[in-house]
Design a protein around this nucleic acid. Structure first.
Lengths: 340, 340
DNA sequence: ACCTGGTAAGTTATCGGTAACGTACAGGCG
DNA sequence: CGCCTGTACGTTACCGATAACTTACCAGGT
């Protein structure tokens, strides 16, 4: 009666074969659409398989054939970050097209955890890995360590190893945003950024610096804050900058958290104060509903995930050793007006 | 030279055993910390394993032992939805504590795809499933179909099967939001909701209806719009409602997309028009930075994921058939003031 | 009739690990 | 000294499927 206690003995290929009076090999061939089996027999087998609801054991199959397991590992720091969850969406989109699934691993930005997670995924037999690295040393993703599995780095180029990677145009996007602010007449432009040790941090700062240089504006360290931290820290830094004797007339923020911090810092400014322009990397949902106009550097993380998957499957397809490739996703500058 | 061509023959347990002059069984016992092996031998084995960098093949282990594979399947409609990605985060947090990993599946709200994805995950040997169901018929998640694997439904109670589930307090949260609007003196309250066929749609509407009833306000169908769709559709519905002869003075939105639609509809209202209050289910990032005050029903999807994982592992631990359990996550009402 | 050649099956070995069982040897005890 | 018990390990079979090889059979060519 109770569905819990039934617990079928988990139908095997032999059972199906026995019921038909054929060998398991015949069933195997029928299921895989291999040649070497008569059409009539194949139909008989498939009918019985369908009738019994038999499903082959994938693990056993992969153990013997040693072939691809149709499994991709995704290692990110924090899936709650929309950037990574959209990356996962794109990755999965392409994977299903290849009959592959995605196995997840979170590192919490801890390089030691990342090492463990990667090792575990390899042990579980992934065919490839997409890693958004937590640290700047990537040697643990090198050849032998991973049984020569293909790896694609996301959002950060490989350091010390030769693997493919997918990147956002951090430099170009930030430079364009900087140019936009300059074009609007701003000369004192504050920068709220990330530590230079991060690739994105370094590249986005470079974009800011080049935009200034192109406009013949000298870099002023008082207008630059680069820190690893949350939006509260960014807010504090923005307030400090705006409290300078000759405060910036515009802010350029290097990511989401910094943009949010800046928005909060600008939130409660009195009406009579000079308005401060804001531009930032990463789009923000409902940016058009904010209390002030916002210019953002927008891009599609889903596309990044798709690109990573494609690199992975292409490398898996060709046995010949190819040089590492690098795909960069373009950014677009979007102006969100303020309401009313 | 080239790391690509080396391609080790993938060290096996037999190799380790041969190198030590012991049997594979001894290596197996040493690795699993089983008894029946001398302490000295164990140390010798572990040393060699570490020296060679040998890692056992998890698939082979699971095939033979038939035991738990330390693998949980997560099936959602769309991981780009923050609700689901945060659910995934919570699930993964608990899983790592049990040495388990999460395998992902997206259904794109298509019940047929959901069936396939679930079947595939079962074939791949998951120990349990967390499913945010796409349809309202859950019979394909019943006992035999899944080889009696434990299943936890997320955000929707089981229909036609007896399994555990984790829910948000849809009814209570919406009622509370409705009460808040009533308490502020509103009598004409519009509702932008989801189709009644969805559990959440039905429950949230019930919360709205009860809040009105408690206040002695009659339900007016002109103030109710229930549709499945994106924020553009919601915006349209909101505009239509506000164009009524005696328009609502407040709107209650049943989810994120409806709230965004309502915000857009309210975005460009002239200054001199009567302000319309807005309350909605689901919190919104930067809600305190919007152009108008917003009250939201907030809850923690990460906690929902944790709860789902706990239900799964508890059921896995006890062999005795237990009655299905239901966990409901509380909501809190949050008032976000407008800037300035 | 004899020899190919192709197709349709069955047989056997194997993937990498583990359960179940067997064996050898140590020590305890009457 | 013989018997029993326990521990440490080796042997074998097996998990479920498949690669590689083998066998059975039938058609067509000479």
């Amino acid at each position: 009666m109770s569905a819990h206690s039934e617990s079928e003995p988990a139908l095997t290929m032999r059972d199906v074969a026995a019921r038909l009076g054929v060998s398991p090999m015949t069933v195997s061939r029928a299921l895989r659409g291999q040649r070497g089996i008569g059409e009539a027999t194949r139909q008989r087998v498939l009918a019985e398989v369908a009738a019994l609801g038999y499903r082959p054991n994938k693990r056993a199959r992969e153990l013997r054939s040693g072939g691809p397991n149709e499994l991709i590992g995704l290692v990110v720091t924090n899936l709650a970050n929309p950037f990574y969850s959209q990356l996962a969406v794109g990755l999965e989109q392409i994977c299903v097209g290849y009959g592959a699934r995605v196995m997840l691993g979170s590192t919490g930005e801890n390089p030691a955890t990342e090492r463990e997670v990667v090792a575990d995924l390899v042990d579980r037999g992934v065919d490839g890995l997409v890693v958004a690295p937590a640290g700047h040393d990537h040697s643990h993703l090198g050849g032998e360590r991973l049984r020569d599995l293909p790896v694609v780095l996301a959002a950060s180029p490989p350091m010390g190893i030769d693997v493919d990677c997918v990147l956002v145009d951090d430099f170009g996007g930030t430079r364009e945003a900087g140019r936009r602010l300059v074009a609007r007449g701003h000369r004192r432009i504050g920068f709220l950024g990330l530590p230079p040790s991060l690739w994105t941090g370094s590249e986005r700062f470079r974009g800011y610096a080049v935009a200034l240089e192109e406009a013949g504006i000298a870099l002023d360290e008082r207008y630059v804050s680069r820190h690893r931290g949350d939006s509260a820290l960014a807010e504090e830094a923005a307030r400090a900058m705006l409290a300078l004797p000759d405060p910036p007339t515009a802010l350029l923020t290097a990511n989401n958290r910094n943009t949010v911090g800046a928005l909060r810092a600008l939130r409660d400014r009195a009406q009579d104060q000079e308005p401060v322009a804001l531009a930032g990397f990463d789009d923000i949902e409902l940016a058009d509903m904010l209390h002030l106009p916002l210019t953002v550097v927008s891009y599609d993380p889903v596309e990044l995930g798709r690109a990573a998957a494609k690199l992975l499957f292409e490398r898996q397809a060709s046995t010949a050793p190819q040089p590492p490739r690098r795909v960069t996703i373009a950014t677009t500058l979007v102006d969100h007006p303020a309401p009313r």
